[in-house]
């Protein structure tokens, strides 16, 4: 097995763990963390393809990973504050109990 496919398999496993968490956990914060894990798996793919792919001097993989990390940070901040705002109305973070959009 080449070193690159090792990294790609690790990234696929990380993505599956994040997907399983986002699908099975009932707490909104943990679902958000699962989505972050999936974003991280994509970042690992970018870096692995940059390292082992052609033309690494163009730095596109590194740049994409940096921009993706900053977008993920913005997403986490806004997502967690939305969870806080929803909690203030419905007093729960359990996704099964959030079944109304009216506060």
């Amino acid at each position: 097995m080449s070193p690159m496919s090792g990294y790609l398999l690790l990234s696929a496993l990380l993505f599956s763990i994040g997907l399983a968490g986002a699908l099975t956990r009932r707490n909104a914060i943990l679902v958000l963390i699962g989505i972050e894990l999936m974003l991280n798996a994509a970042n690992l793919n970018f870096i692995a393809f940059w390292r082992y792919g052609p033309n690494p001097e163009a730095l596109t993989g590194v740049m994409f990973a940096i921009f993706s990390i900053s977008v993920a940070a913005a997403e986490a901040a806004v997502g967690l504050s939305i969870i806080l705002a929803v909690y203030r109305h419905s007093k729960t973070t359990n996704l099964d109990k959030m079944n109304s959009m009216k506060g």
Binding site: N40, N43, L44, I47, W50, R51, V62, A65, I69
Partner: peptide
């Protein structure tokens, strides 16, 4: 994961 990035040579990331 950050240590893996360092191992791949992407220190800044």
């Amino acid at each position: 994961l950050a240590a893996l990035y360092l191992q791949l040579g992407a220190q800044f990331v």
